[in-house]
Design a protein around this nucleic acid. Sequence first.
DNA 1: TTTGGCATCCAAAGCGCTTTGGTGGCGAGT
DNA 2: ACTCGCCACCAAAGCGCTTTGGATGCCAAA
Lengths: 344, 344
Amino acid sequence: MNLKDLAQHLGLSPTTVSRALNGFPEVAEATRVRVEAAAREYNYRPNTQAKRLATGRAMAIGHVIPISTQHEIVNPVFADFIAGAGEVYARAGYDMLLTIVPDAEQERAYREIRSKGNVDGIIVHGPRAGDPRIALLEDLGLPFVVHGRASGITRPYAFVDVNNSRAFERATRFLLDLGHRRIALVNGIEAMDFALRRRRGFERALAAADLSPDPRLMVAGEMTEAQGHDAARAMLRLSAPPTAFLTSSLLSAMGVRRALWEDGLVMGRDVSIVTHDDELGYLRNGAEEPIFTATRSSVREAGRRCATMLLRMIESPPPEPASELLEAVLVVGGSTGPAPGGAT
Amino acid sequence: MNLKDLAQHLGLSPTTVSRALNGFPEVAEATRVRVEAAAREYNYRPNTQAKRLATGRAMAIGHVIPISTQHEIVNPVFADFIAGAGEVYARAGYDMLLTIVPDAEQERAYREIRSKGNVDGIIVHGPRAGDPRIALLEDLGLPFVVHGRASGITRPYAFVDVNNSRAFERATRFLLDLGHRRIALVNGIEAMDFALRRRRGFERALAAADLSPDPRLMVAGEMTEAQGHDAARAMLRLSAPPTAFLTSSLLSAMGVRRALWEDGLVMGRDVSIVTHDDELGYLRNGAEEPIFTATRSSVREAGRRCATMLLRMIESPPPEPASELLEAVLVVGGSTGPAPGGAT
DNA sequence: TTTGGCATCCAAAGCGCTTTGGTGGCGAGT
DNA sequence: ACTCGCCACCAAAGCGCTTTGGATGCCAAA
């Protein structure tokens, strides 16, 4: 059943039917009702491709998720982010187009997306410091919102980000206030912008307490359970082991916890842990009471915000790119306590 | 730059240019070369919408991922599955369309997808026993491949699945052979088909050893770290606690491991753990040597297989739906050992 | 009675591609 | 010299929708 058929059934022209269905004013209310009833009855759905071709709007948003060849990891936050964004798209009648692209082919992929014209906008995932994709997309004139930011890029662009540096500064201060002086940082790969900012926040808090960061207590890598475990295990064997850990992911924190157990240390008493918590659906930090003290910020909500912002940009391009900075909240769980034996 | 422009530049008709670019035989080789060169030079990309409208093929595959309202979990395996499928689509020039749909609106969503006609086929995620979506899709005449199976549906349909029952039967037998008699099952939600089959495999192995399953040693729920922990903690307090655990996910296994530690038990000596391992990118079971003894099967590979199968179905509809049953391999890690104190 | 304006509806021209059903020209066969 | 067949190309008709630019009829105003 297509427009023409429907129009024929109704004894109307396709024009009128189209306008009736799309809420144009120049169609009598009675007619509109009649058309809508018929559309429902015959279960008419306008063909998307035709609509797209005619309007020039794809009614779809592209998500390009980079896949590193070196570190073959599919970031576990994507699923939740996508779920959040998907909700928004569904409500607005947009489709979500996913493209998995090896790091090296990013540029080609973006250009191709642009010229194929099957999306109206793009969400940029996993920005790095000075990420070239931002300039590229601006150049291509494709509306986009970055999930995160790219340090070093000065021209304004649309983004939704968590205030990572503030969160980690706050978390570090929290540990400092508890008397900890040797605090370890188990971070994500620091080519990623969010990890960079977290380190900066960490260092800023240390500096404010007149402490300088100890490179032996800082590690960056893929945020897995094994990473947390291995890093903690090694650090705990130092002559001056850390009394607290700050980790970038719940998985890493779980790894650190395991290392503590292996050494017979009690979490929250002998050694404290603070972690960032993205509130992933399948990785909760406890039910009501948090297990780990954490800087918490829902990545799913970030997905919603990104999507909303992008759709708004597409509907009516703003003169200035908007941006949104979400503040993580510090929730206190059982993984932290005063530094043992007083300050060093 | 569109077809017409390009044709004009070349002094050819759009017809010829189209045929040249699409590899039709009735165009002189010299002309084809000339056209291709020009296309490259002007960076011409055929407009996808137009192509789709003209050919009637969407060149896109839909993934409908159900989102439960009760258990608000975004299944962590989706990300990896999608990554695998995405590779295949990219190579074949297909797009991947993601739709996040609440459980209740599944049917509506499928019908809508069908009538909007913006995909050529669908991957069905998270099938349940007797899943109604299969009949629906058959009814709609939309090519589809199920990732998993739906017990109770007898008419043949295309699927790619892991032999879950065999895997868990094998894992259980492995534990039985080690002398374990009280084996706990920490399963996924048993409305999901894969979880059902795993339980069946588990019970089959027990039955073969003349043991009957103990309901107190069986739990089903969301496969999180907390689930594993809480389940194990409770079971270890039974008058006859299990000497081994079989879990459906690495996360659950990690939770069980935590419960063991809390009780001062040594994994692999006092209590054994076998888990299923989907080989998720961010959740590895050790680097070279596996930490947990596990039934291992890459969900990413399953994604590739599903995608490949679906594309093949679309290119040339087979008379009979194909199917593929992947066998999980049992890898032995440090989490298992002989049952302490001999058999019970 | 004429005119203008408004409310409704419609014909037809796209959107950019594919595809059907040709046409023109050239070499081979007779 | 003429026909036939094939090679290389092209004009035009879709695909199913939107949108421009009217057309028609009716009523109020003059």
